[in-house]
Amino acid sequence: MNVDVAKKLTEVFPGCLVEQDEFPETHIQLQPDQWSKIASYLKETEELSFDSCMCITGVDFGEEDDLESRYNLHSMKHNHKIEVRISANRKKPIIPTVSHVWQIANWFEREVFDMFGIKFKGHPDLRRMLLPEDWVGYPLRKDYVGPDSYHGIIIPKVKEVWE
């Protein structure tokens, strides 16, 4: 399914795919710039109709690599699914939002923003989801270092202290 969709997308949105030797079986690697339009296309095209966004996962592989946002889409109508991956520069992670395409993406993107700091351009309400509003840093990034204290509460770092 991934390959078929990837072929189709290159026809409709030329240059939307990240250059690779061949289409990978497992996923579609997209460029971020046209993502909003592509998402609407994926949802609204009759033979694809990916009407349900199962999951949005933020990924960080390590210090040098870019951040990534992965979308698992599913079609209730045709019962098929694809995975879309979009990379974002670690220094300036910006990916267009899809919260207007799938309502649930609103909360999923907020969670990814909360944990990875990926900014979803055009998101109506990009606030922290699970962490407090005034938390500093993005905990699920590999280079994250936790704070020493939070509102006067000392956070012990050495394992012996809390074990």
Binding site: M54, C55, T57, V59, D60, N72
Partner: peptide, 21 residues
């Protein structure tokens, strides 16, 4: 409902990313 797990492994004993949907 649909309980999803997104697991990324790099061959090490612990996952590099585990997301629970």
């Amino acid at each position: 409902g649909d309980l999803g797990y997104y697991i990324i492994s790099d061959g090490k004993p612990s996952p590099i990313r585990l997301k629970m949907r």
